[in-house]
Amino acid sequence: METSLYYLNVGSAMFLLIGMALLLGRLLSGPTLYDRVLAVNSFGTKTVLFLAVFSLIIGRQDGIDIAILYALMNFIATIAVLKFFRYSSLDISMERGSGSEEKAP
């Protein structure tokens, strides 16, 4: 029973790696900048899933903590990169009530 669960997890990890390889194709060939950002973001989601599966394969909890961190970092990285593209600076406050319309130069 243990071994069949093990093989199930290994198989899904392999398929996740295949999905990540497919996304790398879009990352390298993406015609616009935003295609690449999208590919990186989706790649990060798959990395989180892979880490979660991998930590069950090796039977240790540490991988799941890393997966939580990776999920948060992936989100913050995407937002930061897009903010930089949009305002060409990270030094703009996005306080509540200042509105979504940009008053930036």
Binding site: T45, A67, I68
Partner: peptide, 24 residues
């Protein structure tokens, strides 16, 4: 912890998607 990851992905992925589309 896995539930927490699922919850985080459920909350953050539409926000990230909207940020990418909004920037484009």
């Amino acid at each position: 912890k896995l539930t927490l990851i699922a919850f985080l992905l459920f909350l953050t992925s539409p926000t990230a998607t909207h940020a990418v589309v909004g920037a484009a």
